[in-house]
Each structure stands twice: as C-alpha cells, then as structure tokens.
Amino acid sequence: MTHEELEDAVPLYAAGALDRTERQALEAHLLSGCPSCHHALKEYQSLAALLPFGLVQSQPPRSLKARIMAARNPVTSAVQDGQKDPLKPSLEPGEWMNHLFPPITPARSFSLPWAIGFATVALVAVAAYVGWTFTSRLSDDAARMQQLEATLQEQTTKLVSLQRVISERERSLMELQGDASRRAHDIAELKEQLFQRETELESLERQLASRSAGGQRGRTPQDELAALLRQPSIRVVSLSGSEMAKSASGILLYDASTQKVWMYAVNLPECLNGTIYQLWAIDQKPKSIGTFHMDSGETAHLLVKRLPDFERAKKFAVSLEPPGGRPEPTGAVYLVSQS
C-alpha cells in the first residue's frame, strides 16, 4: 500500500471498517512512526469515541449496578476470567496503541510464585549475556557502518565535484560550439563576398581589355593633350592675335618623344568662302605644318601634326589662305609666335 492509501485508510480504521489484513498493514505503518498518520488517527479515534453521544440515551436497569458491585470480589473475577477466555476478543481496544504509548503504570501482578521469580532471574542473566554479545557485535557493525558511511560520503563529495567539473566543461564546450558556428557563418559570408569580388574583377578585366584594345585605335586628341600636359619635358610656345584678329590667341606644345606639335587656337574669325587657316614653321623660309578650318560659331580649334624638325623653327604663324592652302604664305597673318 502506498502512503496515500494508508492515509486514506485512517478514517476507515477509526470507524472499524477495515478488514484484518488492511488493519494490520496500517498498524505496521503506524508503528513505523509516521507522524501525519499518527496525528490523523488520534483525531479520528477521538471522533469515533464521540459517536455514541449521538444516540438516543437509554439507561440501564438499577439492578445492574448492584450485580456488578457484588461481582467484584476476586473469586467472581477469577470465574469471570475463566468464562472470558474462549471469547478472547479479536480487537483488544487500543491494543496497537500500547506499542505507540507504553502504559505509564505497568500491569500489576498480585501473586508471583518463587519459581517464576527464579526463572525470571535466570532469564535476566541469559538476556544480559545475549544482550552483551549482541551489543558488542552491534558496536563492531556500527564502527564498520561508520567507516562505510565515511567512504560513501567521500565518494559522494568526489562525485559532486566531478559533476561540477563536467557541467563546467559542458558549458565551455557549448560556448565554443557557438563561437565556431558564428565563425563558420562569417567564413561563408566572406567566401560569398570573395566570389562576388572575383566576378566583378573578371568583369572589370574584360572591360579593361576591351577598352585598351579599342583605346589604341580611337584615342582622342584631347586624351593625348591631357597626357601631354602632365609631362615635365614639354615645350610651350604662345601665339598672339595680329591686327587682323586682336582678340585671338593660341598656344603650341611640342612633345619631343613623339615629335608631335599641338596647336590650340581661340577666337579666330570664321573661314569664309572656302578659305582656310594654315600653320607655318619659319626657319630660313616658311614651311607648312598643316591647315584647319574655323566653322561658324566655333571659337576654338586644336590641330595636331608631326613636326620632326620643331627645334630648328625660329617662329610660328597662322595665315588665312585660299581653299586647299598654299606652299608658301599668301594671305594675311592672324596669329604669330612671341619670339
């Protein structure tokens, strides 16, 4: 029976409703010293003893008291005892309680034959011997038990500390796992970024390759001029407007590495009726470098030509010539170099 079942059986025990087996089970439990069941039983037994108060009272006949008082002599009692033996009750009232609450006053014996006295003395002596043997064995057992308990306690302490270490290791392992998982995630992200960058790089390389291939063919003069202006070894000659075009001006740049001359002219008048401007390099005599045309609304023009003997020229000039230009200057000069 579980404790709950035993506890449930307490009110039934007090009411007298348990069968013998159940009664014995509960009594054994009570003797084991269960305080809650013990307390409950005391209350329920007090209650059970109250129940007859609820009955309608009935008085015994007056003669009964006289009979009882008369029957109290020892002889009658002995006769009564003899009669009672065959009817020995199965339920001695509160019998189990004797185990829980030993009577304060022990049962008296009015006459003890000397033989019983002697037997008692002998029994006490034997009991004392047995008790002494038993006690010494008990003390041995107790010492062994203490030793075992000490060992057990030691082992338990070790076990507890080991459990603590294991739990700490588990915790740090979990932290490491979490860290590793975060790092793996970072690595995956970085790989992804790297892959994207490689793709972009490939695409840029392709663009660069196609641009550099096209750049050789379609490079504009402006690009070359910009490169030219960054070179420290460039030669510069400025041109100013003549009486024909006072607001006009120009500049000549010469790159010895490529033997190219660059002329940039601004504010020259528009070329009319097919006329054309012609640039001259003048040493002993004028030599045509090239021609250019100024359209309506055009204010600036860039002319690029090869001129291997630039160093020999002393002066430069731009004149307006008839259509197609001339081997020597024939028209008015519009721009002329300063020195």
Binding site: S46, R72, F101, P106
Partner: peptide, 19 residues
C-alpha cells in the same frame, strides 16, 4: 457486567496518553 468487571481488574492498563 463483563465490561465493568474488566475495568475493575484492568484499570491499571489505562493510560491518559491514549485518550
């Protein structure tokens, strides 16, 4: 009658701690 005679003989068994 039986009960009272038993009480007379066994009253020493009564223990107030039991009720």
């Amino acid at each position: 009658q039986d009960v009272y005679l038993e009480v007379w003989r066994k009253v020493s068994r009564y223990d107030i701690g039991r009720g």
